[in-house]
Amino acid sequence: MAKNQEGMTLIVKTITRLTVGLILLFGIYIVTHGHISPGGGFAGGAIIALSFIHIMLAFGKEVTFKKMNQSVMSFFESVGAIMFITFAILGIGSGYFFLNFMLKGKPFKLFSSGLIPLYNLAICLKVGAGLFIIFVILVLLKIPKKGGEK
């Protein structure tokens, strides 16, 4: 209990431990069902980023960076961008850029509508990592006080 003084009080930490997994699961649900129900990559990625921000607000930065450090974030962001471009370029093989060349499947099934779930996954990785990076940069790095003329 007393080993980690950073972050908020014990009540907030306990509630966070209970709820943060549910928030992460809800984000994953929104992403994977983005082509069936309302939602999609952007909203799901933002919810996933919010779950990590939740950990960071409650437990402080050290616990968060143990789970998700900077190289992992930049890896996810790059992988999202490269996945998106790669799927778009693969469409050239059978027609044109952004062609949805995979089988469509039955509507209302999870594995349907060709490439759209994979696009959603790429957008989710990119948006989640990007928004979390922006939060970390804005909170941790501080502009020094103006001591005089620059």
């Binding site: 983005g34 082509h35 069936i36 309302p38 999609g40 949805n100 469509k104 349907s112 509508s113 959603n120």
Partner: peptide, 16 residues
């Protein structure tokens, strides 16, 4: 497109 969410089919297929 095979996607039942029309918004998703527009932003990721027609207007990608």
């Amino acid at each position: 497109t095979g996607a039942t969410n029309l918004v998703s089919s527009v932003i990721l297929d027609y207007r990608a």
